[in-house]
Amino acid sequence: MTRLRKARDRLRKNGTGITLVFIIPYTVLFVVFRIGPAVAGLLLGFSNYQITGVVSWAGLANFRSLFTDPLFWNALRVTVIYTVIAVPLTVVVSLGMAQLCARSIRGIKVYRALYFLPVITSLVTSSVIWQWIYSYNGPANWFFGAIGLGAVPWLSSNAMVLPSLSLMSVWTRFGFDMLILLAGLLAIPKEYTEAAMIDGASAWARFTRVTLPQLKPALFFVVILEVIQSFQVFDIIYVMTGGGPGQSSYSLVYLIYDQGFRYFDFGYASAAGVVLFAITLVVSLWQRRVFREDAR
């Protein structure tokens, strides 16, 4: 009894009690709905699972099939290329927009809200709009025709489809990243840039030597988020290209969807999911390390 009272007093005194009250509900939900299914997915990768509940142990068979399947390697290649194009593009645009929005000009709050609109627009709706923009007789080709460049095969060329999808992804994502970077920018004490200005640093030097290093935590967060988002690209491909032309936009998550929900091979789909998880984890840890080393 005394021990219980002591523990209670300790929790009260150092504030741990109230902290736990706030943390535990989320932790429980996170474990049940995130960690649990993730571990279940991992186990499914080693099994043959039927939706009626029949599960049999498959060992490494699903992974062996996966690594000898040209479709998997194509999907991985597509996902990596998409990530390489989409992530830097999104981060650069977000950073530029955050810089613009950090200025105190009239109506800046309205601009910020407008830039955020694509983020809260449904991805499917955005995809349908962009499908129209990219269509053969659509506004994008009308513009290129008007300036004498001719029609661009936005979604019908193997080489153009991933850059086109990346461009659309920038439009849907930059508003969110911009807000994070904007918060980071506004948190940088003005004294730093003012001191650099007095020392005669140019605008570019102030940006690269003062702003960027100070923005590193926010940038790290944005890059990690974008890499994860890009590795999980699905919706826009599902609506806009169906993985085509050919298999030029057939991403890893699209493969998982196809194998699971279209072909009923949940074990195989889960194995692909495990590989995707492993890749994302390794890339995230590597990024974390790079950003940390730079910070020293």
């Binding site: 474990v31 049940v32 960690i35 649990g36 299914p37 993730a38 571990v39 279940a40 991992l42 186990l43 499914l44 699972y49 009626t52 509940g53 029949v54 599960v55």
Partner: peptide
């Protein structure tokens, strides 16, 4: 937790 979730996901239906 994963095993529990997997078992739950498998449900009670097992028709072989």
């Amino acid at each position: 937790a994963g095993v529990v979730t997997l078992t739950a996901a498998c449900g009670a239906v097992n028709v072989g």
